[in-house]
């Protein structure tokens, strides 16, 4: 054997579900038949074929009940999660260029997972704010290099995901001033540089204090 025995790499995202449901979890592999559609519903990590539910990932099978549904849901969970931006998910993006009508950005994280390779996103002028959509000036909302929180609106047409910051909790979370210092938010539309004291316009996100 060429490759010496390395320990498998520890995954980044800890899945808490696995640790709470420790009744001898069942390992399943792609193509393994789990249940028939009469007994359970197919959840993520499974697919349906000819009336039976099969696994499509290599991981642990987990069956859970949800309110309002009589059948429990079968899903297969893996430690490492692949992330692709889906409609409605919150993403973290870095602004790459700003023009009068839109701003282009590179999506670096989807929800809590950091992507290896950034996807491209686009924020149009009318999706920046919820109110006074036509009086938006892009240069007063974003600058290249800002880190923004946005929601995926749709998959877009020209290879970019369409993003929106038209909510209070979305917008710029981290920005560097022209002097190069990290700015402190003052209100929903401007931030202040601690070095020079000057204020710059941004569409600021109202970040809720999170419990770590």
């Amino acid at each position: 054997m060429i490759f010496c025995s390395d320990t498998p790499h520890l995954p980044e995202v800890a899945v808490t579900i696995l640790s709470t449901n420790m009744a001898a979890p069942r390992v399943c592999v792609p193509g393994e038949r789990l249940f028939s559609t009469a007994d359970c519903e197919a959840g993520p990590g499974t697919y349906v074929h000819h009336g039976y539910i099969y696994s499509c990932l290599a991981g642990y099978m987990h069956k859970r009940k949800t309110e309002g549904k009589e059948l429990s849901i079968v899903e297969v969970i893996r430690q490492k999660e692949d992330a692709v931006p889906r409609i409605g998910s919150i993403v973290t993006a870095k602004v790459t260029s700003v023009s009068g009508r839109m701003c282009k950005c590179a999506i670096t994280c989807v929800e809590r997972t950091t992507l290896r390779e950034p996807f491209r996103g686009l924020i149009r002028k009318e999706d920046v704010r919820a109110t006074e959509k036509d009086r938006v000036e892009m240069y007063k909302c974003f600058r290249p290099g800002d880190i923004v929180l946005a929601r995926v609106l749709s998959l877009g047409d020209a290879n970019c995901y369409l993003l929106s910051t038209a909510e209070n909790e979305l917008g710029v979370v981290l920005a560097l001033s022209e002097a190069g210092a990290q700015m402190v938010p003052v209100s929903w539309c401007d931030m202040q540089c601690p070095k020079t004291g000057s204020k710059e316009f941004r569409k600021v996100a109202k970040v809720q204090l999170q419990q770590e």
């Binding site: 980044e12 870095k94 994280c109 950091t114 981290l174 770590e212």
Partner: peptide
């Protein structure tokens, strides 16, 4: 949050 800081300001 360290992973976010790392991607935002490496």
């Amino acid at each position: 949050m360290a992973a976010d800081f790392k991607t935002a300001q490496p």
